[in-house]
Amino acid sequence: MGRKLRMVAVRCALSGLTLLLLSAVVFAAGQVLPGDVGRSILGPLADARAVAALDHQLGADAPPLLMYARWIGHLLQGDMGVSYAYRSPVAPFIVRALGKSSALAAVTLALVVPLSVGAGILAASRRGRWQDRLVNLGGLSLTVVPEFVSGILLILVFGVWLRWLPISANTRPGTGAPEQLRHLILPALPLVLVLFGYIARITRAGMIEALDADYTRTATLKGLRRSQVILRHVLRNALLPTITVIAAQTSYLLGGLVVVETLFRYQGIGSLILTAAHGKDYPMLEAGILTVGAAYILSAILADALVAMLDPR
């Protein structure tokens, strides 16, 4: 157990280091990118003195290292700075956007995990038959369709033509949770389609390996019921790689959100970052990217912990 704890500690320390590096890169990029902060806020016609005064007020004229130190110090205290564009603290924006993105990601995972794991298990138990080929081929072909293509197709079919699902992800304030969820299904579907193939195929491979394993035959020859063999001996081993893949795909999910959120005009963290980048709103941009990075690292750690719990090796 001590070895595992040490591994977790090392892992966390490394993650912290990764985040620090990411912050440095993000910050440096903010310094190097062209454009003067005060100028971009006040517009091209503003007086040069007013621009300089604003720069000073925002701290944008300090030496870079000092600015970086200040920024990190504030971040550590939970202060993400003040948005250049909105002239108000960044944190609430990030929190709101993160909440929305999490809802979308949660809907996506809630749809894709049972679907794809189920399909993978089905394919493995019907190895070589049509169900297996359908899952394999279907998964493979869906995976290569870009989200904006499938997104537009889905909008046309389910939103415009069949009118089964709302096109916009946004709801009016005061809408109930079930209705909000219904609005998220269509935006989640393009992501579901891409992830389905990966997860289903890795599940299938894991299942087949575990079904063919000697220990499964050992369990069968003990005279256990088929259901006990599957539940106690097969699934646990078969799903270990699946868990790792799902966690790895979260990074993809975070990237895919940008496309989908833009397509469906959904104010999540992806579109927040995109807007901030357009408007050279560096505090917002930096905080957004760091948040995404942290979310990514967190999901990886969680998956590792889960695998470590299930796999004694």
Partner: peptide, 24 residues
């Protein structure tokens, strides 16, 4: 299943694979 449970057993070449790695 009764036959497997009560009358016959099998031992394979590689014991590390005959045992489930995730159970004690």
């Amino acid at each position: 299943r009764q036959l497997w449970a009560r009358r016959v057993s099998m031992v394979y070449q590689d014991p590390s694979r005959a045992l489930n790695p995730t159970l004690t």
